[in-house]
Design a protein around this nucleic acid. Structure first.
Ligand SMILES: [Mn+2]
Ligand SMILES: [Mn+2]
Ligand SMILES: [Mn+2]
Ligand SMILES: [Mn+2]
Lengths: 237, 237
DNA sequence: ATTGAGATTTTGGCATACCTCAATTATAAA
DNA sequence: TTTATAATTGAGGTATGCCAAAATCTCAAT
């Protein structure tokens, strides 16, 4: 079923769409770290900047629409339809981020908030046009995978640089950064630590100290916190 | 004061923005035909697809914000600030319409509804970028003038083709079409009666009959209703 | 100038959506 | 079993909309 039908049939509010997307993203994060599928009320409230009571209310509404399953006092999960809808929103968001950087000329630290506003307002036709204009891209400016029109989302196995063992002979490729913080994004840009860059992890200071990272042209020190949001892949060589 | 400040300070709802824009546009239409400045409750209700009572309520809110003046039972008018805000929205709308046709590749009958949704969602920076990308355009795809960033709106004196006297030697330029109806827009496109086209008014059938119009390559008959929305300018020659 | 019919506008009552806060209840760790 | 944490409930607030009754205006006829 094309998304336009799904979205217009359900006539979901912008707020409802935000909840769905937040549930999807929090679940992704849970799967990366823990092994859970259930998103808690508090986590959702924090993410959306809303009181916990508001979350319970909206979650009930979404459960009535069969977009989520709700186990009271335990957590929320997406149904198949809910996940599909969430993926369509994530697709909008990430396509827009890439469009805003590649076509409109924004920096990668400027696009998240704009995409958050635009993702609810664009038409399916607009989505299709920019997808084509961008050559059916698979990744957004931060390396986040863009779901296909059919709702498929894939990507290589990635691990944070923070989990790697220093080895000057091993080359990694930066694939994705797990942050939308403009300040951090600008800082990474300045150090040329952006998706696509080849790096080597030279050394790690003891007791949670900084990591020494070499690009092809320079070396720098980054905190474990930063290394935790940089997802890398083993590079050939 | 830049619009971003004006918009964020007032924190006006999307609904409020729609009212402001509707008041502005109805007032423009009144000025063209009658000589009034006061927009009636009913006209606003019809335009916005809302009950008259809803209009009274919102108008009161806008009057509290000093964006409009409200003379009960008489009508509503924009204050200076309200007009400024309305012009900023109209600028968004018309820039977006042009952008959607020229850059994204939509036809002129497809862009109005999309611009209506997007005009509330884009940032000032996005507005500036597409304005630059389009070369600071003065007119949208329908020939509607685009207000400047400073809120200036100008345009040549125009009259509907319907008001012209047939004269095969006189050449007009189509400058603007006063409709957003997709069916009519497609029809005009098909007849090549689009802004920029040079035409001559050959004849007019009696008793409100059709007008015979010649383009450089063809002739066609159009109804007085259509000729009423086609605004033309005397062309050199 | 006055009047009264008809049209328009406002008012007041109600509904829905989304939010907050405070009190209550459930869960799970100590 | 106790206690801390988390989630839900219920009351209440704001924004926006609808409808129908009441108020007000307009305008043509006297
Ligand atoms: Mn983003
Ligand atoms: Mn992203
Ligand atoms: Mn338009
Ligand atoms: Mn237009």
């Amino acid at each position: 079923m094309p998304k336009s039908q799904l979205r217009s049939q359900l006539n979901l509010s912008e707020s409802g769409e935000d909840y769905l997307k937040a549930i999807f993203q929090l679940r992704e994060e849970l799967r990366r770290t823990h092994d859970s599928d259930l998103v808690t009320t508090n986590a959702l409230a924090a993410r959306l900047g809303v009181a916990p009571g508001s979350v319970t209310g909206m979650v009930k509404k979404l459960a009535d629409l069969e977009l989520v399953t709700h186990a009271p006092y335990r957590g929320v999960n997406l149904t198949e339809v809910g996940e599909r809808l969430a993926l369509e929103l994530v697709r909008h968001h990430r396509l827009l981020e890439l469009y805003l950087t590649r076509v409109v000329g924004f920096r990668w630290d400027e696009v998240h908030d704009q995409a958050d506003a635009l993702e609810h307002a664009i038409s399916e036709e607009f989505e299709d046009r920019i997808d084509e204009m961008l050559g059916n891209p698979a990744y957004d400016p931060h390396g986040d995978p863009i779901p296909t029109k059919e709702g498929q989302i894939t990507g290589p196995e990635l691990a944070p640089l923070a989990a790697m063992i220093p080895d000057p002979d091993r080359i990694y490729t930066i694939v994705r950064v797990l942050t939308q913080d403009p300040t951090l994004l600008r800082y990474l840009d300045q150090l040329r630590l952006t998706p696509g860059t080849h790096i080597r992890l030279m050394a790690r200071a003891p007791f949670g100290g900084d990591l020494r990272v070499a690009t092809e042209t320079a070396e720098c020190l980054i905190s474990p916190l930063i290394a935790g949001v940089m997802l890398v892949m083993h590079s050939g060589h």
